[in-house]
């Protein structure tokens, strides 16, 4: 991906001042089919400093996506409080959100999709087009403005989604398994691109993933969730700037990876709804 030097530097630096994210005693339950309540997030206390890159990891159904939607203001907590900076979150372009399945509007062009995030603001047409063009250049899609999503590869679609999330110059970027539906090579390239973008714009990032490797490559801090609660909070002290290839050579990386993976593995094996439930004995034997 090439970053055009013609993009004014002001755009890169104009990210609004960083805002941290604070969860205080946050719980959220949902009503399921038979009327019962299942809790998705339980008593979460979490403080994320501004400009930090935090990965949220844990088995399926551990509440990580719910936590992300609470941070976006898409969901209201049942109890507790969430603050972005010093105000409760409100959905809008100031908080960027990237979803796993891209969620591009199929009947809109690439430019139309990216511009969608700003259409609620009272921007005039020229200003909007200018911002869209600059954002597309930044994610390396300058020549694709007129294409429709169906004409793009998976990696390009996710870059459009990223451009849409970034165009509001968000101080907080929320990402819900954004690269999970990409093939392995595209995923690695996208990870590097994301790091490069983050190093320039420096929003606070909350990044949900299933992948231990992805979490360790990208994040300053990895939060392990299970059963709706925060189970572990791990610092990742790998040097930056990181790129996918060299980060993995560090011995620290191997140690953290081993630790996180055994943690997640235990969570999955202890989950009665998992296909691997009850495999402790067999797995231990293999390990021993």
């Amino acid at each position: 991906m090439s970053h055009s030097p013609s993009v004014p530097d002001a755009i890169h630096r104009s990210t609004s001042r960083g805002r941290g994210i604070r969860f205080s005693g946050v719980s959220k339950a949902f009503t399921v089919g038979n009327g019962a309540r299942t809790s998705a997030v339980r008593e979460v206390d979490l403080e994320i400093a501004e400009r930090q890159f935090v990965a949220l990891i844990g088995p399926s159904g551990c509440g990580k996506s719910t936590l992300l939607r609470l941070a976006d203001g898409l969901l209201e907590p049942d109890t507790g409080r969430i603050e972005i900076g010093d105000a409760p979150p409100r959905p809008g372009p100031a908080i960027g959100m990237v979803f796993q399945n891209f969620r591009l509007i199929p009947w809109r062009s690439v430019a139309g999709n990216v511009g969608f995030a700003l259409e609620g603001q009272s921007l005039d047409r020229t200003e909007l087009n200018h911002r869209v063009q600059a954002q597309l250049e930044q994610v390396g899609l300058a020549g694709w403005a007129g294409h429709y999503p169906a004409q793009l590869s998976g990696g390009m679609r996710q870059r459009v989604a990223l451009a849409r999330a970034l165009i509001g110059r968000p101080s907080v970027l929320l990402m819900d398994e954004p690269f999970a539906s990409l093939d392995a090579q595209t995923r690695e390239l996208m990870q590097d691109d994301l790091l490069a973008l983050w190093e320039r714009q420096h929003p606070t990032v909350l990044f949900v993933t299933h992948s231990v490797d992805e979490a360790l490559l990208l994040a300053d801090r990895v939060i392990v969730m299970g059963g709706g609660a925060v189970l572990e909070d791990l610092r990742v002290d790998l040097p930056r700037p990181r790129r996918s290839t060299d980060a993995r050579r560090a011995t620290e990386y191997g140690r953290l990876r081993e630790h996180l993976w055994s943690r997640i593995r235990d969570l999955v094996l202890a989950d009665p709804t998992s296909a691997f439930f009850g495999r402790h004995v067999q797995a231990d034997r293999e390990r021993g």
């Binding site: 372009p93 959100m97 259409e119």
Partner: peptide, 16 residues
């Protein structure tokens, strides 16, 4: 519903 949630996340009003 995925697109509707995306639009809500972008701050779009109900009518938009």
């Amino acid at each position: 519903p995925d697109l509707v949630e995306m639009a809500r996340s972008a701050g779009a009003s109900r009518s938009r």
